[in-house]
Amino acid sequence: MKYLILMQVDPSAFDSLTAEEQTAIGTGHQAFIEQITASGEMLSTHALGDPTQTTTIRGTGGKPEVIDGPFAETKEFMGGYYLIDVESKERAIELAQLIPDAGIKGLSLEIRPVMFSGGANM
Rank of each mutant, 00 (worst) to 15 (best):
L48Y: 05
Q22Y: 07
E94Q: 10
G118S: 13
I5S: 10
H46Q: 12
A38E: 13
M42F: 15
Q30P: 00
D50V: 01
E90A: 10
D85C: 10
T56F: 11
I104C: 05
T23L: 14
E110P: 08
T23A: 15
D10S: 03
L17W: 03
G61L: 14
E110H: 06
T74A: 13
G118E: 13
M78N: 05
Q35F: 12
I5A: 05
P11D: 12
G61A: 11
S12A: 14
A92D: 05
I104P: 00
G106C: 10
I33M: 02
E76T: 03
T23Y: 10
A13W: 02
L107W: 01
S44E: 11
D10H: 11
A13V: 04
I57N: 02
L107M: 15
G80A: 01
A13T: 02
E65D: 07
S44V: 00
T56D: 14
Q30G: 01
H46R: 06
L83V: 06
M115V: 07
G61F: 01
L48A: 00
I36V: 14
T55G: 09
P51N: 08
F116M: 15
S39K: 04
Q8Y: 02
S117C: 12
D15Q: 14
D15F: 09
T60P: 08
T54V: 02
Q22T: 03
E87V: 03
T23W: 09
D101S: 13
E110M: 12
V114D: 04
S16F: 03
G59W: 14
T55A: 14
Q53W: 04
Y3T: 03
E34M: 10
T27K: 15
E110A: 11
I67E: 11
F116I: 09
G61Q: 11
